[in-house]
Simulated scan of single mutants.
Amino acid sequence: MRALLIVNPRATTTSERARDILTRALGSAVDLRVAYTQWRGHAAELASGASDAGLDLVVTLGGDGTVNEVVNGLLAKGRSADRAPALAVVPGGSTNVFARALGLPVDWVDGTGAILEALRDGRFRRISLGKANGRYFTFCAGMGLDAAVIRRVEEARHRGNIATPALYLRQTVAQLFSDSDRRHPAMTLQVPGEKDIPGLAMAIVQNTTPWTYLGGRAVSPNPDASFDSGLDLLSLKALSLPLTVRAAGQLLLGKQPSHDGQVVARHDLEKFRLCAQSPQAFQLDGDYLGECDDVKLESAPDALRVAC
């Protein structure tokens, strides 16, 4: 089996020595070469090249952003799961939602061991992905508040802060108080065959559960989301402070926010659209992608083979 290991050298939970150990361990099981990412988007280029070269497997060492790039590279040029290398994910970021959703250990050593066992046993799983305006995502997309919070967190990290649950909570509160439009929601949900739902302030889309983690606590607004079904959606209407605080408290307790007329939830959607009167913050797999006013979302069944 020919494989490529794509390493993000800025991965937060591994050292150079750890990467050498990982390389030797994987190299004992497959014909391995290693490539290090050097710029944003480089992982996608490397993965696309691996697909073009007919490799059997691409392994990532990095966070969810690295995984997202690799998935989009593997499936570029209209490739299907049968025509692209399989994916294996070694946790290396600060949160590693995708790896944990697959049931892999958080520790990179244990994660490597699980991947080696899967390769030895020929154990591969087909999973669905989401697509937003043509770009794949593995576990979540967001428009509005959650994406704006991710933007704030990324800015804080560039200033030297560490991404902790406390940082996310602080930036959520700061975004709520700084957002002058939160009481006048700008988004509309369009689902084929249903009446449009206007007046939405934020939208959380999940391809699986959880949506994210706060430390060791799984947070899932859409607890029924699964790699084996379509996309799940949860939206809030006017972001009044009491509503948002209550919804956040319910999420932290592992509950879905209650449906009181201010919450819109959908399960197992094949496709839908989010439109906005003004550009809104937008994120995929926890990576802030800028602002947009029109996002077409769809489920891509059985899109990817994963060793796990």
Rank of each mutant, 00 (worst) to 15 (best):
M1Y: 13
R2S: 05
A3F: 00
P9Y: 00
R10I: 02
R10A: 09
T13S: 06
E16C: 03
R19M: 07
D20T: 13
I21L: 10
A25N: 04
S28T: 12
V30E: 04
V34Q: 11
T37Y: 12
A47Y: 04
A47Q: 04
S51L: 15
A53Y: 05
G54N: 14
V59E: 02
V59Y: 00
N72M: 15
L74D: 07
L75G: 12
L75R: 01
G78Y: 15
A81K: 13
R83A: 15
V89K: 15
N96S: 08
V97H: 02
G103R: 10
L104S: 09
V109D: 02
G113N: 09
F124E: 14
R125D: 13
G130W: 05
G134E: 14
F137E: 13
G142L: 07
G144D: 09
G144K: 08
L145T: 08
A148L: 14
I150S: 05
R152T: 05
R157A: 14
G160R: 06
A163H: 13
L167V: 14
A174Q: 11
Q175N: 11
D181Y: 07
H184E: 06
H184T: 11
L189V: 06
K195P: 07
D196W: 11
I197Q: 13
P198F: 08
A201Q: 10
M202N: 08
A203H: 04
V205A: 11
N207A: 12
T209E: 02
Y213T: 12
R217G: 02
R217M: 13
S220P: 03
N222W: 00
D224S: 06
S226K: 01
D232L: 04
L233W: 04
S235H: 09
R246H: 13
Q250H: 12
Q256E: 03
D260W: 04
G261I: 04
Q262D: 10
V263K: 07
L269F: 06
Q277T: 12
Q280T: 07
Q283N: 08
D285L: 08
D287M: 13
Y288I: 07
D294A: 15
E298N: 14
E298F: 14
S299D: 08
L304E: 07
